[in-house]
Design a protein around this nucleic acid. Structure first.
Lengths: 306, 306
DNA sequence: AACCCATATCGAATATTTCGATTTGGTTTA
DNA sequence: TAAACCAAATCGAAATATTCGATATGGGTT
């Protein structure tokens, strides 16, 4: 074929990065909404342009060649720089039409995102938000371009990420209002002994209060683990179990459960992260401001009520 | 139109860089061997992708916008990095088919290039060499990608260039064998007074011996200026004029002229320059080695003869 | 106002990309 | 060992995009 490498466009490089990330042509095709044939064709052009198979079949799947790793590393950086370069510099929320991807978890979907969306429907009706579950993969999602922003109780120290603090948060206990522990759970020994539903967030993430507890040599009486706090009230009501969750999640459950202080003080910060790719993009700048504003409204309202 | 910027390929960015360099769509079209209509179409896509006119008409020609300067600076760097990335890593001279551009002047075309070409015809018949006249623009040609290598008696100090010394060179006088000055021209006063044909290399370049002379307060009796040493014998023979040229150019004229020492010692070095763009490219590495080898053969032969 | 220059635009010809269907090559399962 | 299975490669046809040659447009100059 002898393709001129200069005929490759940035979409092709994006396909390469996706194939590298997914380890599969078909999966990449699906995620792009095109056929596997198209991905195959693009890969053929890439292979020809770089004079290397890039991926070789091995067992079930495919593995990248050394050259591929080099090419992906280089072109991935180019993609990010190019995206930053082409990002719109001015932006009219009323008419702009675009989609922004946010990587976050249940907490943010309950507390922050609904408020942001209410603002967006009014001020930027053409802006679509695509939420993906970050679980423990948020950092990769952000780096790989699967999402544009990451919100969560995490700390990324690499200087390649930009951060903006949004909300301070702490943990509280929740339980059935009829649960007799409601009177005594603030006590350390009672808390430790109480039958606990532990939220493991579906991955290797450990809630901060667990880390604090264990640092002090205490281990919860975990009688159940769930991946998400989403339906905790349904689980807790009618039982003697308690759960320990971030305060604002507890508050979102309303009167279904009662809230009590957790004897282990565990303070965390919900932060917003992004990369150089979107740093100067006007719509992204604007959306980040809206998210920060929503966080501030939450804090102000709480201060007024408290 | 609303073009997706990711649909732009590197050729399009190259067109942008060329238009920026030439200050003209038509000139760019010509240099690429396509019609002006095609360049216009590509520019339309670029304008749309970057959401900016990039070039605006002003008086006779066009001037780049601020955004254009930013885009060209960024994408030009990407082009170079991409070229380095796609450069072939292994290379079989016997079968490789490619073209390499060399920027140089008459001296190199006479002394070095013929030897290199003789090697190339034998070892790399598929490699084409495109020589462009560097005059005083060699550095820009190299930076802009108009050529891949630059050979000449120049000194580029920027760290963005790679250098390899090829040949030391000095100046000698040449004249008609019948010219009586052949006996006395080594004398400073005689040399200064002799009717001289000065080679000005068609630009602002001044031969090193002139710089040395003038530093000592002497000015040649320039009775004629020519842009190139190419046909000096035709000019000198049958007259009382002398010319002062690099020794190996003089030698290339054979018995048409006699060679005498020039009383002003002016030593220069003929160097080979290239950039990161081609630094790791196997064919370029190979060709640079052939050029260096040709230079060494010249030196060895001279040492043997002398 | 007429002219000149360079870019923009138009319709037709050409080239490339995409799709849906099928084949190929290799691994797992019966 | 064959059958089944999976993912990538390939094929022909349809849909898109690019290029050309010719012509229009628009600003600056005579």
């Amino acid at each position: 074929m002898a393709t001129d490498p200069f005929a490759l466009d940035f979409s092709a490089l994006r396909v390469l990065r996706l194939v590298h990330g997914h380890g599969s042509f078909s999966r990449t095709a699906e995620s792009l909404g095109v056929t596997q044939s198209t991905v195959s064709y693009t890969m053929a052009r890439l292979r020809d342009a770089f004079g290397d198979p890039l991926f070789v079949r091995q067992g079930a799947g495919i593995v990248p060649t050394d050259r591929c790793e080099e090419v992906v590393a280089q072109t991935s950086a180019m993609l990010d720089r190019f995206e930053a370069l082409t990002a719109p510099r001015q932006f009219d929320p009323a008419v702009a039409k675009l989609e922004i991807g946010i990587s976050c978890n249940y907490y943010e979907r309950v507390t922050l995102i609904p408020k942001v969306m209410r603002t967006l429907r009014q001020k930027a009706p053409g802006m679509a938000i695509r939420i993906i579950s970050s679980t423990v993969r948020g950092k990769e999602q952000l780096m790989r371009g699967d999402s544009d922003m990451l919100i969560g109780p995490i700390r990324l120290e690499e200087p390649s990420f930009f951060r903006r603090g949004l909300l301070p948060e702490d943990y509280v206990c929740i339980m059935d209002p009829a649960n007799p522990l409601a009177r005594t759970v603030q006590d350390v020994d009672t808390f430790v002994a109480a039958p606990q539903v532990v939220v493991n967030y579906g991955g290797s993430f450990r809630s901060r209060f667990l880390v604090v507890m264990e640092a002090q040599g205490h281990y919860p009486n975990a009688v159940m683990e769930v991946p998400s706090p989403a339906n905790l009230p349904d689980i807790l009501v009618g039982t003697d179990m308690i759960a320990t969750v971030p305060r604002r999640i507890a508050e979102s459950f309303g009167a279904q459960v009662v809230i009590r202080d957790c004897p282990f003080l565990a303070e965390i910060s919900i932060d917003l992260y992004w990369t150089a790719r979107t740093h100067v993009s006007a719509p992204h700048v604007w959306l980040r401001a809206q998210i920060a504003a929503a966080a501030n409204r939450i804090l102000t309202k709480e201060a007024g009520a408290g």
